[in-house]
Amino acid sequence: MSAVALLLAPAVITAPVLAPSVAYAQGAEVRYIVNDTAITSYDIDRRVALLKLMGRKGNLREIANQEMVDQTLRLQEIARLRVGANDQMVNQAYGQFAQSNKLSTAQMDQILSQAGVTRDHFKTFIRTQMGWGRVLQSRQQSSKRLSEQEVVAKILQQGGRKPSATEYTLQQFIFVIPASERGRTLGKRKAEAQAMRSRFNGCENSHALAKTQLDVTVRDLGRFLSPQLPPEWKTDIEKIRARGATAVKETERGVEFVVVCSTREVSDDYVAQLVFQSEQKADTNADKLSEEVMAELRKKARIVKR
């Protein structure tokens, strides 16, 4: 197993930045209560096993205790801000992680099971990292918002030329799948979404098109400047032109795709502020920001050790 640990250690540390389900295994005891969420001895044992696989040193039991408390606080903040990764994103990151270590997902499952980590615990670890990255990004954006004077200064630095941005008018098709029917109907609904996507011929006909299929909702999302596009759709949207549709994605609601009704180039003071804001470099000391936010969460939290 030591060879596997060496293989996984660097990849785990650099895995993409993924709400724990509390596992009440037989004989598990509650060790902590964090804002009414229980952390059990089973959860902590799984984290100890993960730390071993990562090659961490020191008192792994104490490190695992702290990490599980922190993970619970992070997941609660992710849920509060509604910036969590959906199952499709988590599964994709898990698959990419396995592939980066030249493993199939089945082999990855087996290694994690044999090591005592389990696939579910590792996926929760990934889900937390992904969501926490979005929490920090949100904090950076709110703390680094440029003033009008700073925007004017940047425009003058560029010779008085204001930057432009693409404005998108968007709609969203949602093929609803009840949670109780997801496993049975997901494939069928994806095929239906693909078929409707291929028949899309303009937003003026979207609502009529949706009525040809049961349990399909069309949402008029309105206008978005390119820096404001939803992160989970941004790359796909920017690849297509007006009157085009993104690929179909699995989401918590079912399966969805977004269509671009129209685009136009816009240049004004507000656009300048958004563009300059989006161009700002990320905080080079992300660890410091993370610890500052964690300190705030710990101070406000009710943490009871059993």
Rank of each mutant, 00 (worst) to 15 (best):
S198C: 05
E150S: 13
Q140M: 14
R145T: 15
I174K: 10
S198F: 04
L214P: 15
G202K: 11
E148Q: 08
G131R: 09
S180C: 03
A208P: 00
R134W: 08
I177M: 06
K211H: 05
V152L: 05
R139K: 07
R199Q: 14
I174F: 02
G159Y: 10
M196Y: 10
S143D: 14
G183R: 09
E204A: 06
K144C: 04
R197M: 14
E148T: 06
K162V: 00
L146Q: 04
V218A: 00
S164A: 15
F200K: 05
Q149K: 15
A165L: 04
S138W: 02
R199F: 02
G202L: 07
E181D: 09
R197K: 15
Q157T: 03
V216R: 10
P163Q: 05
R161F: 12
V135P: 02
C203N: 01
A191L: 08
S180Q: 10
S142G: 06
V152H: 05
A191V: 06
K144S: 14
L221F: 03
I174D: 08
G133W: 03
T185K: 13
V176R: 14
K211P: 00
M196D: 10
F200M: 09
Q137G: 15
M130G: 15
G202H: 03
S147P: 13
Q213F: 07
F173V: 06
I177W: 01
V176F: 14
V176S: 12
Q194F: 13
T217Y: 09
P178Q: 13
L221M: 15
G187D: 01
L209E: 11
A195K: 09
F175H: 00
M196G: 12
M130F: 13
I155V: 12
S147A: 05
K162S: 04
S180M: 08
E204P: 00
M196I: 14
A210Q: 03
K188A: 12
Q141M: 08
M130H: 10
A195H: 07
V135F: 06
Q194M: 14
R184F: 08
Q213E: 11
P178R: 14
A195C: 02
L209G: 08
S143H: 09
A208V: 01
L214A: 15
F200Q: 04
L186A: 09
E181H: 07
A208T: 02
A165G: 01
E150V: 05
V216Q: 09
R197V: 12
G133N: 12
T212I: 06
V176E: 12
R139N: 05
A165V: 03
A179Q: 13
S143L: 15
L156M: 08
A179P: 02
A208Q: 06
Q158K: 14
K154H: 01
G183S: 07
K190G: 00
F200Y: 15
R182Y: 07
E148Y: 01
T212H: 03
